[in-house]
Amino acid sequence: MAFRLEKEKTTSTPFVLIDEEKKYMKLEGRSFNENVAEFFKEVNDWLDGYLTSNFGTFTFDCAISYFNSSTTKLLLNMLLKMDSHASKEKKIVVNWLTTEDNEIMVECGEDFRDDLNNLQFNLIIK
């Protein structure tokens, strides 16, 4: 059965949706929990397996409005992992969704984009 994970957002942890059937993942809200590695463990564990499968096209919408430095590092590692698996046969689309006045997220998106070569990184500023 296709994996599905849905976590409601809290003050310091984001909304998480993984819908394997739809080949889709979404993060939304704020992420600054001190124990961010533990929070994202389930997501990372799933990704490790999923990325080795022949998924075709996978989409990740990242609509986080604020994250702390620990989350930044974790997310960059997640994106680098995706990037290492992305290819012609395994297309990965990352939509980095933010707003023009959110300078932290815009700059971070720009910086991340520079390091990602194989996946399609769309910086979408509204």
């Binding site: 809290t10 003050t11 310091s12 600054f32 929990n33 001190e34 124990n35 604020y66 707003t99 006045d101 959110n102 300078e103 932290i104």
Partner: peptide, 26 residues
């Protein structure tokens, strides 16, 4: 950890009430 969440909520609310640019409040 969860104590910080409580203080963070208070700060977020306060920053929301004050009419300052998002850059500054972030």
């Amino acid at each position: 950890s969860s104590g910080i969440d409580g203080m963070a909520e208070m700060l977020l609310k306060r920053l929301e009430y004050e009419d300052i640019p998002l850059n500054a409040s972030q």
